[in-house]
Amino acid sequence: MGRFVKTAAFSLFIIGLYTFYSVFVIPPINPGEPPSESAASGEPATIVELLALGEEVYNGKGACALCHTREGGRAPALEGSALVAKARLSSPGYSGKAVDAESYLYESLVDPSAYVVPGYGVSGTDGGVSPMPDVRASSIGLSETEIRAVIAYLQSVSGVEITVALPERRRE
């Protein structure tokens, strides 16, 4: 019976060590709560509210910041996106239907493969397919208002004039 106690104690000690390490040694990081159903509780009434919603969606529900970082290099950085949008329309690889910078951004969100920035395509497709999902698809599930808010936010960080119309004004 002695060897049973010995081996059992040894095994428990090993398990205990791993547990101790995982619980106390590595820093405790709690994964975030699942995102709420919709970030937009109501229609934003002012540009400031629209921008705030856009930033919230960009970093939260939309999970844009996950890939669009400078270090990762997985996706193009977006801080100048609205600045370059206009130029993209006339670039040879462009196959979409957008007519201006705002509609280009909208298209990039809902149909990312319309234009793939060179070097960022899915490997093996020769840059023809973007790895980004349609933001309306259920894995992200942005509403129309949230998409508009993200575009406004992108325009604001790019330092260009915000052309996105507020929902009320669009309805008129």
């Binding site: 205990g16 995982s22 619980v23 405790p28 990081i29 994964p31 995102p35 698809a137 259920s138």
Partner: peptide, 30 residues
């Protein structure tokens, strides 16, 4: 998978949909 039953298709709406921390997982695994 985070808060999904079937990733990007079927959401987990239960009260325990959140992702547990590594510390909690380590205790369960132990």
């Amino acid at each position: 998978r985070q808060h999904w039953h079937v990733y990007s298709v079927m959401k987990d709406a239960s009260a325990e949909a959140f992702t547990p921390s590594i510390a909690y997982a380590a205790k369960v695994v132990s």
